[in-house]
Design a protein around this nucleic acid. Sequence first.
DNA 1: GTGAAAGCGCTAACAA
DNA 2: TTGTTAGCGCTTTCAC
Lengths: 338, 338
Amino acid sequence: MTDDQNKKRANLRDVAKSAGVSVATVSRVLNAPDAVRPKTREKVESAIRTLRFVPSAAARAINSGRTRFVGALVPTLDNAIFARFLAALEHKLLDHRLSLVVANTYNDPAIEVEKAKTLVDVGAEGLIVSGITHDPALDDLIERCQLPTIATSYHDPSYHLPTVGYDNMAATALALDYLAGQGHRDIAVVHGPLANNDRTRARMAGLDPVGHAAQLQFFETEIAILGGCRAASAILAAPRRVSAILCFSDVLALGVLFELQRNAVRVPDDLSLMGIDDLAASAHSEPGLTTVHLPVSRMGETSANAVAGWIETQERPAPVLLVPDRVIRGSPRAVEPG
Amino acid sequence: MTDDQNKKRANLRDVAKSAGVSVATVSRVLNAPDAVRPKTREKVESAIRTLRFVPSAAARAINSGRTRFVGALVPTLDNAIFARFLAALEHKLLDHRLSLVVANTYNDPAIEVEKAKTLVDVGAEGLIVSGITHDPALDDLIERCQLPTIATSYHDPSYHLPTVGYDNMAATALALDYLAGQGHRDIAVVHGPLANNDRTRARMAGLDPVGHAAQLQFFETEIAILGGCRAASAILAAPRRVSAILCFSDVLALGVLFELQRNAVRVPDDLSLMGIDDLAASAHSEPGLTTVHLPVSRMGETSANAVAGWIETQERPAPVLLVPDRVIRGSPRAVEPG
DNA sequence: GTGAAAGCGCTAACAA
DNA sequence: TTGTTAGCGCTTTCAC
């Protein structure tokens, strides 16, 4: 039994020995092949192949001081909106030769801290978090490690971390404005839990019922299709009738739509419906869902650039505001005058 | 300007010096606090705090030979079915103190190899891939690195990697069997691209039209809501009428449902509809979508255990077959006799 | 163009 | 209980 066989994995030294060169030369063919004579290089490359040598990332990292990955803490993987964000983030990060580690926080600040610690522990060079409401321990960790961290899905230039996101208040304002413009005065608002969720809170704050002379009824539910269904049931059972339903996310709107269909309530003939997000499903449902498009793909790319730049230059990036815009489809209609 | 200030990050030595102990002692308070006298430990912990010391994962990895993370290569993040899988995978991996790095392959074998290389390069201790059709270069990489790798969403005990997945053939067989049992003979089959997708191929192979005396028409489309819409249009325009539509995934079925609604075709009164996956949306759509439940959450957990065990014990795990089962909801109905 | 040797930050064996 | 020290696998001067 030779050395080659009982070792788990060949290292630089093994390759060097096998190729009859020094470790420095092997390192060179790995990192600066042009600095090595072709003939030598070939010898080394052949040894690399036969020994099935794969350089150790850890050893590399320890020298360069870099791990080349960033962590993303997302509240859920279940909502397609986050999937879209992560896809763009991962893709753009790759341009900076950075990998992405995803951690699910299940919307729980305590879990978020835990996972953030793990991320830091395994060497994350940067972090992407959602919103600006976090456990103080997280801020502490970020501070202690001086870890480049971007807060997404939110816009607040005064926040202690740079934010890359849209104006949540503007999003709901845009939506309510549209419904009011269509003549709706009695509107049901369906939203996710307010606890621990600054995005939902901000969307709430964006509503200006007085300015639109509107009467709003609020329905809190879990952000999921089922949550939408339940809210719709509650709306139908409520004493006060509404002419439109505004959902703080399209998932909710989809659930509402299904439940209304189940109750033979026609959209938009009997009830108008509007969402926020602009998911793929929203464009193709019947009727199409009028919604506010949240630029999450751009948010992913922008966040990637921001955190990569920060890591590279050590200079904190400026916050970026992405502007949401309305997508008009068939789900609402103007109320009949009189 | 002292040393403490112009260094980017304190290391073990800095802490040791500052606390007036040896590096070994600092290492001990990190890894085996009980082996250190409380008073000493306190001194060290205080130094750690003031110096904002965070241990280097790379240095740790180089000693233990471990990076404590595995990579998952998924074809897309857009389909909720993968999100569910990843959530379970990540969660279970954590029990083994392993992190998850997600890489999107966009269904492209070439991109898959590229990302796999990156993953290995950054030190992945194991890999999770989808299906059994891959670029030879991937198999080569896995082989060369002797990298614990699990192939998911597929079942094939003879495959060179252990598979953790369901029997795709059984899934469609189950579905067709149900529709045929309801008396359907003319059925449209809506499926994703066959190229590079063994899961779709296997689902195709699971169909036994002859055994069920059924006439099948096939409609290939992209796996997305829009793809389903398009397929539905094609089905409605086809010369030969069908009484039922079988979709190879619920996303497709949802698109089909929307398009049928748009064309005032009632489900199940005018046309029966069945899917495969069992997404959250499927349970709450109107009508509820009869489908084949794919146990992707269990697949995530099982894969996590399998790869973690393999990494730990160096022993290749056995393939695991997860059994899909039917979920009967309202979307299909029996054909009227005669 | 190539090699020798000094680390990178940490763990673990061994000594005290 | 604590300290000393030899590596882990690699990159990177600095000679030759």
